[in-house]
Amino acid sequence: METIRQENKRMKAWISFGVVAVCLFLLFFMSINIGTLKIGFGQLLHGLFIHYDKDVATIYDLRFPRIIISMLAGAGIAISGVLFQAVLKNPLADPGIIGISSGAGFMAVFITAFLPSLYFFAPIAAFFGGLVAFFMVYCLSWKGGLSPMRIILTGVAVNSLFSGLSSVLNSMSGGNRTGVASIVEANITQKTWDDVKILLPYIIAGFFLSMLFTQECNLLSLEDKTARGLGINVNRTRIVISMIAVLLASISTAVAGAISFLGLIVPHIGRILVGSDHKFLIPFSALFGALTFLLADTVGRTIAAPNEISAAIIMSIAGGPFFILLLRRSSKYGKQ
């Protein structure tokens, strides 16, 4: 009976992977055809790989970077959410909610506003800002242990602090949409292939690093004494996994802006569909995160056309009620 149950879970997981992958492929093709210029699938392949096509070239330069950045940033933020929830033992942890994204965004805004010649170093600066925000949350939340509610409340305060500072810098810079404001408002309209080149290697590296620690993430769900008894250095493991999570969230924020609730929603749905084993949860969250963020961006482009709504706003509208529901259903999060 147990073997049958395990086989059913595994089948459900693989079906979930397949369905999300197909949906992502279909949404990708749908997204490249949103606008006045539309092409068929055959024309797209022909223009990309066989013979130059003016329409395909236009879409390739204008729409492809935005779509790919949506997918990469969505994957990075979703994986970051999974890792933070494992490290903090808090299913409500999200890099946007607990202030990591806003800390990273502040440093990216600072570089963009005052040191534009160092723009390509913005991801490194964002990583430093994310680390500062994380250690502020971790240290200020510690009171003989970590309480999920204290983490959330402290994170909200840190998030407000750095978001306010970013808004100040945005006002001081005159609100340049192609620079500072695009980070503050999470606007990816004007993103180019240069931004893809910045984001891609970090997301790939972060994904493979996170996959190296799937077993440790599973063990961190146990009591610390039990994990130590199994030979894991709990404190060192938490620090390393936290660094990976901060890296993914910070680099994604530096390019796509601060996105809240994505790192909360995706892991929860992932656990329902593929289970809590991080060997499956992390890659599924990457795939589903890419789909979710691309969907949010696509909805934002179409719902008020020809005007656009930022994907961050779409995620906030969808994620706010989801967060409240989780908080109400889990009375244990209120324990101090």
Rank of each mutant, 00 (worst) to 15 (best):
G130A: 13
D61T: 13
G320N: 05
A157R: 08
V184L: 07
I32M: 14
G263R: 11
Y138D: 13
L83E: 11
F64R: 01
R236F: 10
G103M: 09
V82E: 13
V156M: 15
L327N: 04
L327Y: 06
G129C: 06
V56F: 04
L200K: 05
A78W: 01
P306C: 00
V180A: 07
L27M: 02
S167N: 15
G257D: 15
F41K: 04
I317C: 13
L37S: 09
V168I: 14
A186G: 04
G320M: 12
L209T: 03
L27W: 00
A318Q: 07
M315W: 04
H278N: 14
I39N: 08
C23W: 02
I152R: 02
T36I: 11
K143P: 00
N218V: 09
T302Y: 04
L295P: 05
L169E: 08
D277A: 06
G47F: 07
H51W: 13
I183G: 04
N235Y: 09
K54M: 15
A21K: 02
I151G: 00
T154V: 12
M149A: 09
Y333F: 13
T112E: 10
F127P: 04
L327V: 03
L327K: 02
R150P: 04
L72Q: 07
K12W: 03
A286C: 05
M211C: 09
F64L: 13
I59A: 02
F49I: 09
S171Q: 14
I39L: 03
R301H: 06
I32K: 10
D55G: 05
S102E: 03
I259W: 11
T292V: 03
